[in-house]
Structure formats: structure tokens, C-alpha cells
Design a binder for these strands. Structure first.
Lengths: 158, 158
DNA sequence: ACAAGTTCACGAACAAAATTCATTATATTT
DNA sequence: AAATATAATGAATTTTGTTCGTGAACTTGT
């Protein structure tokens, strides 16, 4: 499946503003709304979008502490790893979940109200999983979704 | 400003599907579209949304390598830090940008085509910033935006 | 180079959703 | 309880989404 410039432009626009209307995207690309609609439908059908997420202003929700929790397990069989993922990804406060290669097995971006909630998250929820080898917590001052698609403007995929 | 259950439900719904139509959200909350529209407008006006991002299927874009690059600087004056941020956050391939407290100053989630592009990213783009003390790269097997808002269902903010 | 076929973009027509607003209902305050 | 403020509603209007027939542009095979 080939992507041309227009397709890539659509992806980039929605990447940075997922609530743009079809009409707005069309205007940006300088094509007819119906044409744009066809392309957007095709991109969706072909699975170019994983999800559309609203990035919330956490401070307004009284979520004042964001941290990156790095976890190392002491067993790495598929079963143990899967069970960790299954159990952890649904915990309240989890924002983003990375499964890593290397020293650290998981990096979990979490957001909570205060340091008490953080303590409870780590001690009560994370640490009582049986195969934890190591947990390290680093505070996040500031995070940002940048989304600079690493595709050259001249590049066309097929 | 107070948030009630319905507001929180709206935020959660859009967090997980930012392209839901007003009508769909209204149906989910079991309220009239006009009511829902008012609330959504209010939430937007009051700044509860930072952004709406499409999460793209990177494999389909020939972006096969995702890594978390940890950077430590050897100077931490505001000027140096700001200049690093300004310079780095716009680099092609940067997906998410974390400014950290602690051992590591920045964690940068990047996505590139292959290990060659990664090498070039690190050597040509990152490493020639003057105040780099340390760069560490960890491969990401898999990442996911989970968005489990850490707000209790019974909780109401004001 | 040319004909046949395919792909793509377009605009008009229709359907659906967004948006506004006057009215009614529900809370809050005094 | 009356008065006031706040929120929800449905109907009317505007705007957008969606479909589809038509024609332009581009491919392919000869």
C-alpha cells in the first residue's frame, strides 16, 4: 500500500490534532472534502491509526505528581512477563506503559495526586507482584507529546 | 470550577477515543447532545485538554525501531537546559519528550526506520550538543497509551 | 503512440451531526 | 417557600459528513 504526500500530511495533521474535522483537513491539504474523506477512510481501514487520545491537563484534575517507574523482574518467562503486564497496565494512574529490552524491563509513566498516592501505588500495587527484582522511581518535571514523524517530506511509502 | 461525574466521564471517553462525536459521547452518558455539547465546550474553554493526538501505527510507516534515550547534561543552568529542550524536541523521530528530576535529565522516546537512523540520530543530532555528560539508549519492545485516569469514580473536583 | 483500462479527484445531493437558543426543569440561596 | 441561579431539553438552523455519478489524469500493453 502506497502513501503519497497528501496521506502523510493527513497523518501528521491528525497526529497533532486528532479532532480536526474532515473539512479542516481538506482545507489544509487544499483538496476537496470528499477526496479527503476517501483518503481518511482508506487510512483508517488500512490500520494506520492505533488510537486517538486526548491529552488531559492533569493539574486541573488534581494530578500533581508524575513519575517514571522503572521495573526489573527477576524472571523473564513469557508467562511471568505477560502476567505483570496484564496486572499493571490497568492500574489507576498508569498513563503510558513501555516494555523494554535491556536492564529495565518496564517503564511506566504514572500520574497521581500526591506523594502519598505514589507511595501507595508502588508499595501496595506494584511491589507485591511476586517477581519484582528492582523498582526505581524518577520524577517527571514536564512531559510533552511531540510527534515529529520521522518521514522525509519527499519520501513515499509503498 | 467543579467537575461532576458526567464531566469526568467525558474526559475519560475522549482520552481513549478523541475522535468520538459529540453525539456518541452524549449517547454514552445518556444525556441530550445539546447538554453534552455545552459541557464539552466548557471543558475545552477551561483548558482541560492539552492536545488531541493520533497514535499512529509506526510499523506501517516503516518506523521499526523505537528507543528511549536517556540524557544527562553536565550543566544544569536554565539556559543550557532550555537550549537543549528547544533544540532536541523538534528533531525528526522524537515522539515523546520527558524532562526529569534526578540522575537522568531527559528521557526521549524516539522512533526511526532502523538502527542506522538511530545511530545518526544519536551521533549527529544529540551528541553534538555541548553539554552532554551521558547518553543511554534502551530499546522499546512495545509501548502503549493506557490513560487510566487516577480519579475515583465517586470523586468530584472543584 | 495509442487505446483500453485503472485510479483518482471532484461537486452535487442527501443524510447526519453540530450548534444555538428559547423554554422547562432542577438546585441553591435567603 | 419564594427568588434566584444553574443545568437540561428539544426544536430550528447551520454546518459537516457521506455517497456516488462523472470526468480528468495517469498506466499498461500492444
Amino acid at each position: 500500500m502506497k502513501l503519497d504526500q497528501k496521506d502523510i500530511q493527513i497523518l501528521k495533521l491528525l497526529q497533532n490534532n486528532a479532532r480536526l474535522s474532515n473539512k479542516e483537513v481538506a482545507a489544509e491539504l487544499d483538496i476537496a472534502p470528499s477526496t479527503c474523506h476517501e483518503r481518511l477512510k482508506r487510512l483508517t481501514r488500512e490500520g494506520f491509526f492505533r488510537a486517538f487520545n486526548a491529552n488531559l491537563n492533569l493539574k486541573k484534575l488534581d494530578i500533581n505528581v508524575q513519575v517514571m517507574v522503572s521495573v526489573r523482574l527477576n524472571k523473564h518467562e513469557r508467562e511471568v512477563v505477560n502476567s505483570f503486564i496484564k496486572r499493571t497496565r490497568t492500574l489507576k494512574g498508569v498513563i503510558k506503559f513501555y516494555h523494554m529490552a535491556g536492564d529495565t524491563d518496564f517503564m511506566i509513566h504514572i500520574g497521581v495526586k500526591d506523594s502519598e498516592d505514589l507511595r501507595s501505588f508502588i508499595l501496595d500495587k506494584l511491589a507485591n507482584f511476586s517477581y519484582i527484582d528492582h523498582i526505581e522511581t524518577a520524577m517527571i518535571f514536564y512531559d510533552e507529546c511531540v510527534c515529529n514523524l520521522s518521514i522525509f517530506e519527499s519520501e513515499v511509502l509503498e
